[in-house]
């Protein structure tokens, strides 16, 4: 999982997180043990549907202000480290 999240963890950290994640999984297992045969699946805790907005333009942010917050920028674009993999 650390691999997937691209995190380098020390051995102690690995041990600590393994315990914490195990507790989360246990909790999920408890929930899965409940009888839900009579319940409909929910996609969202709120019973709302179709929260929509009209197709109307709103002002965008000032580019210089946005890029001034970025670690690095060049030619109006965000500068990021060399990317190893291809785009998914």
């Amino acid at each position: 999982m650390a691999n997937l999240a691209k995190l380098s963890l020390s051995e102690e950290e690995e041990l600590m997180y393994t315990g914490q994640l195990a507790a989360i999984l246990d909790h999920a297992r408890d929930i899965m043990a409940l009888d839900t045969a009579d319940l409909l699946p929910t996609a969202h805790p709120l019973e709302l549907r179709n929260v929509l907005r009209r197709d109307v333009e709103a002002p965008s942010l000032d580019r210089d202000e946005v890029l001034s917050q970025a670690p690095a920028a060049e030619g109006g674009r965000f500068m990021v480290p060399r990317i190893l993999g291809e785009a998914p």
Binding site: E74, G75, G76, R77, F78, M79, V80, P81, R82, I83, L84, G85, E86
Partner: peptide, 11 residues
């Protein structure tokens, strides 16, 4: 991508 020094992103 392969061999690129860095990448620039336009959102």
């Amino acid at each position: 991508i392969h061999g690129a020094d860095y990448s620039l992103v336009d959102y």
